[in-house]
């Protein structure tokens, strides 16, 4: 098989064509934070955490959606990228009502880990405190929009893996919200199969099982990736 020569952070690498920059980085232990990416789901390039610099390209590119090409020279850890990752993280926290101390996902939250990773010691932007609903209508899961970061992993896993299309996004701009059906309470959805994949795909405490109280939540997003892989294997 042909391979491509590329450079990531000054390190020469031989890689298979067709892979994304993010895939190559993960294979080579180069750490790039992500939120909207989940192995097995279609990438959308929405969270902008995985932005990288590519020499000769004047725009920053999301590594999850950009495929490697021959002689690409990529930088993943420049001061500018680190600064932007931190701003993005702060904007996530300021956008809705993320209060780790009272969150069921405390200690098991990808957003919280991201905060540590990018060295977020405080948030320089005013909290927006939007009024968000908590949908407790489902028999055994809760959707708390206060903790949602609009990564749309639930939307994609529901459509692409489960095939139910219960979730989608309504409105636009700052007013976007995850909806089920016609913005119907989750418990009254006509399409939800109650499979729980969205709960595992969700990186924060936005979707969680009712049976849990604080800090008990353990999610298993890798299960989704495994599921997708096994389906492709056609066992």
């Amino acid at each position: 098989m042909t391979t491509l020569d590329i450079y990531i952070d000054d390190k020469p690498l031989k890689v298979e064509p067709g892979k994304t920059i993010l895939e190559v980085c993960r294979e080579n232990d180069i750490d790039i934070p992500t939120m909207c990416h989940l192995d097995g789901l279609t990438d959308v390039g929405a969270c902008r955490l995985c932005l990288v610099e590519i020499e000769g390209v004047n725009k920053l590119q999301s590594s999850c959606t950009t495929k490697v090409s021959a002689n690409m020279v990529i930088h993943t850890q420049t001061e500018r990228l680190k600064r932007y990752r931190r701003i993005t993280t702060e904007l996530f926290f300021a956008e809705r009502n993320h209060i780790c101390a009272v969150c069921v996902a405390n200690g098991n939250c990808e957003l919280q880990q991201l905060g540590y990773k990018v060295g977020m010691d405080h948030i320089r932007y005013p909290y927006l405190f939007p009024s968000c609903e908590v949908d407790t209508s489902h028999d055994y899961m809760v959707m708390d929009h206060n903790r949602c970061i609009m990564c749309t992993r639930c939307v994609r896993v529901c459509g692409e893996v489960e095939g139910a299309y219960n979730w989608d996004v309504m409105n636009r701009g700052f007013n976007v919200r995850i909806i089920s059906d016609f913005n119907t309470p989750w418990g009254e959805s006509g399409t939800c199969t109650s499979c729980g994949k969205c709960m595992h795909a969700c990186p924060t405490g936005a979707i969680w099982p009712k049976s849990l109280s604080g800090e008990q939540l353990h999610k298993n997003p890798e299960m989704i990736s495994e599921l997708v892989k096994k389906r492709k294997m056609n066992l």
Binding site: A164, Y165, N166, V169, I179, D181, F182, T191
Partner: peptide, 8 residues
Amino acid sequence: LPPSRVYA
């Protein structure tokens, strides 16, 4: 179509 897609 899924209802969510239309509403979206």
